[in-house]
Every structure is written in structure tokens, then in C-alpha cells.
């Protein structure tokens, strides 16, 4: 739900301000790749109506966000491709593919794709965090969006602890990816929490 909320917050922000200054389209592209790799099972496996609905919403809303930022004026006119230039194709995609291949529990296409998607998701926030560090001052809605985008994985960790004890659930790759993903946010969270506590604008060091 937090993940969904972060997407809705971002959509709302783009629609309301008609500007995507401070938002990394490259992060959304990483997530689009993550979702496409992971949700292949939509074609051959049914888990629940909730599960299917969320997958469809995540994929379609993320592609819509990319479309808005890259191609749909007036939002696309505010997209700064020079600032948002983190080369994830080199730094994230390659390593995620290699890690996905060597750490997959089974050498099947869906399993390798799933594993690669977990590793890629764990670092997908990097283009966004690096963009914010260049700008330093973060708009309120952008701060909420990034905070919810980080918080959802933290809540997965709580759920994993519960599931481990309640049903003996084990998911080593998911756990490791989740810890890396949450760890990358800790620094941002600190400055976000401080800005909320003191009721000031979020300014990154």
C-alpha cells in the first residue's frame, strides 16, 4: 500500500504542479524493468485477485509516469535530462543481470529474471537520491514520495520476520535485497525525519 501510495503521490504531484523538477525518470525506468522482469508470472500463474491487480497497476502506472515525464507536455518540458543522468544501464542493469544469473535458486528464465529484479529493485532509488543530492532542496511532495518509496521495503522486513515465525517462510534473496534497499534510504530518512520534526523544508547536505 505504501508503494502504491508513493506512485499516487508522484502522479498527483506531476498533475498538480505540471512539473517534474526533482523527480528522476531514470528511477521510474528502473522500476519499469523490475516490474517487467518480475511480473512475467502474470502470464502463467494466478495467486490472487489482489496480487494480479497490484501487478497490473504497478506496471501500467510506472509506464504512464515515464510517458508523462518524457513525452507529455507540459510536464515533459520541465524534465531535465542533464541533471537526471545516472547511467543505470551500466552501473545497475549489468550487475543485477550477473547477480541474478549467479544467485538464482534455479536456472530457469522466470527464476533468473525474478532474482535479477530483486537486485535491481534494491538499488533502483539511486538515480533519484543522486538527483536530489544535486538539487539539495527538496519539495514537500517530492520528499513524501521518496519517503513512502523507501518505507514500503522496511515494512516488508517486518512482514518477513512475522512470516518466518508464523509459517517458516524463507526468502534469502528477497531478504538481502530488502536490507540493501532499506539501507540505502536510511540516510535520506534521517534528514526527512529531522525536517518533519522541526517543521522545516528538507535540505540535503
Amino acid at each position: 500500500m505504501l508503494h502504491l501510495m508513493s506512485i499516487l503521490l508522484l502522479l498527483w504531484k506531476l498533475k498538480k504542479s505540471k512539473s517534474c523538477v526533482g523527480i528522476s525518470c531514470r528511477m521510474q525506468e528502473c522500476y519499469a524493468i523490475v516490474f517487467c522482469l518480475r511480473y512475467l508470472d502474470l502470464f502463467y500463474q494466478f495467486i490472487s485477485v489482489y496480487n494480479t491487480a497490484m501487478k497490473v497497476v504497478f506496471i501500467s502506472s510506472t509506464f504512464y509516469l515515464i510517458f508523462l515525464m518524457r513525452f507529455q507536455p507540459p510536464v515533459s518540458a520541465t524534465y531535465d535530462r542533464t541533471a537526471d543522468s545516472f547511467p543505470y544501464e551500466q552501473y545497475l542493469l549489468g550487475p543485477a543481470a550477473v547477480l541474478g544469473f549467479i544467485s538464482a535458486e534455479e536456472w530457469s528464465i522466470p527464476e533468473i529474471f525474478w532474482t535479477a529484479s530483486i537486485w535491481l529493485e534494491s538499488v533502483s532509488i539511486l538515480p533519484q537520491l543522486i538527483l536530489l543530492q544535486q538539487l539539495r532542496e527538496v519539495e514537500n511532495l517530492t520528499a513524501e514520495f521518496v519517503a513512502t518509496m523507501g518505507a514500503y521495503r522496511f515494512f516488508y522486513i517486518l512482514n518477513w520476520i512475522y512470516r518466518y515465525f508464523a509459517e517458516g517462510y524463507v526468502n534469502w534473496i528477497g531478504w538481502l535485497g530488502g536490507i540493501v534497499q532499506t539501507g540505502l534510504y536510511v540516510d535520506f530518512f534521517y534528514y526527512y525525519a529531522m525536517s518533519k520534526w522541526y517543521g522545516q523544508k528538507l535540505v540535503l547536505p
Binding site: 508503494h3 518480475r38 508470472d41 500463474q45 495467486i47 496480487n51 497490484m54 501487478k55 504497478f58 535458486e105 534455479e106 530457469s108 522466470p110 527464476e111 525474478w114 516488508y156 526468502n171 528477497g174
Partner: peptide, 10 residues
């Protein structure tokens, strides 16, 4: 034993 590779999380 066959590993179960159903991923029920998002």
C-alpha cells in the same frame, strides 16, 4: 525435494 518457486509477494 522440489523447491517451490511460487513468489507470492509483489
Amino acid at each position: 525435494e522440489e523447491a517451490d518457486h511460487t513468489h507470492d509477494e509483489l
